[in-house]
Design a protein around this nucleic acid. Structure first.
Lengths: 231, 231
DNA sequence: ATTGTTAGTGTAAATATGACACTTAATTGC
DNA sequence: GCAATTAAGTGTCATATTTACACTAACAAT
């Protein structure tokens, strides 16, 4: 027991925020939502949206609230990523941030800027301005986790509409993994995994041969394991 | 922007603690360190060791400090697990806890109790008293993560001494996974993965045929991927 | 009817996994 | 020294998974 019994610094409390990595797929590219800061520090730099955790809300409620404030979406995929607590990560004061990742469908979004930001925008993940604070690190962490989860879960359906073609799904995988995906092997794997339900409709995109539309099987959305097939 | 501009509750701050899941292998059984609480709430119940994050230390530093206070070990494997923030998880006040997992070698331990606990003890993970707070949930999370990481990383060496036999290593896997491991398949896999270095010495445990001693290859300790072999 | 474009389909080789039983080398007790 | 005991150490085969790879089918536009 090395602790002094009355040490005022033991009762100083760091603040806690949640920061949101909000990802979506636009033009078949993975994009992240950033807000432009109006004030010091990192004035005019782009940052992850986020805010303080209030006294009576859970971390997840705080994340849902922040997400709704920025994008007006509810009921989306939300996952806690990691907690960043370097004492110097915010030059104002000690702020510990719990990072969350949200995956949203681009079709049901209405962006809105917070009071202390001057702009809100989607940025393609491969070409970003360098974000404020340690938000670049947080974003990298989120993308790495998403890439990883893509390989053994259903997570991709969070980014796609109810009905989609196999090519759209394949392109989603390729976009997130950042590398091409073999068409035949992809189809073999995903179809034999049983997470997809074939529909009778086809996508009439106009010019070419119409593609069959699929949807994710409802019961499989939550359990999530695709690839390692049980024997 | 739905936020009222001056809302005092926005400036109330939750406290932040780190809670430690300290795991070791004793008698070839996975064991966790718990402390017995002296005071309300959960007086006389067993809990994970932990404490407040101080103003000027990182989360990891706080975890290292707590770990040292309880066990006097340094330089062990430490990993952030998850952050638990349910507003009701502590009946006294709002406490957000960042859970860390530490893996220690049982041979270099000197346990010591904190001021606000009456006892410190190892408990075999399969047979525990029900812990205080949400610490049961935290512990389950830690064990699930460890089991998972065992399958694709080197993490087991954190629990073993420098030199060990293949049977000891196999028993470690079996103890953590909670199920038997096939001897020949295990040896085939672990030897072909290249993480082990054969030594010329053998373990003279007395009674029987002496077993060859191995150690983990130093450079491989950190990268960690064992099983999915790259092509 | 021809052209352009994307959808859709199968096979074979290499690799990884999982089940399974006997021999070897030491100690102990007689 | 010899037999009994105990844990160490070792290999094969069947099956499942992964990967590489190229052509035909269906529709729209002209």
């Amino acid at each position: 027991m090395q602790r002094p019994k009355y040490d005022a610094s033991r009762y100083e409390r760091p603040s806690v925020t949640v920061d949101m990595v909000i990802l979506t797929l636009r033009d078949e590219v993975l994009q992240v939502l950033l807000v432009k800061r109006k004030v010091w520090p990192y004035k005019n730099r782009w940052a992850l949206p986020g805010g303080f955790v209030r006294m009576k809300e859970s971390l997840e409620q705080a994340a849902i609230r922040e997400l709704y404030e920025e994008t007006h979406v509810k009921d989306v995929y939300l996952e806690q990523l990691y907690t960043f607590g370097n004492p110097k990560r915010d030059p104002r004061t000690r702020v510990i941030t719990v990072a969350y990742c949200a995956l949203v469908r681009s079709e049901d979004l209405r962006l809105s800027a917070d009071t202390d930001v001057s702009d809100v925008r989607w940025f393609p993940v491969p070409s970003l301005p360098r974000p404020a604070f340690d938000h670049g690190e947080i974003l990298n962490y989120a993308v790495a986790r998403l890439q990883n989860k893509l390989l053994y879960t259903n997570i991709a359906f969070q980014l796609l509409p109810d009905l989609f073609t196999l090519t759209e799904l394949q392109n989603t995988y390729a976009a997130i993994l950042g590398k091409p995906v073999d068409k035949r092997n992809f189809r073999k794997k995903i179809l034999s995994s049983g997470v997809l339900e074939e529909t009778s409709s086809r996508k009439q995109d106009g010019r070419h041969r119409p593609a069959r539309l699929y949807r994710f099987v409802k019961e499989k959305e939550l359990e999530g394991l695709i690839f390692p097939k049980k024997r």
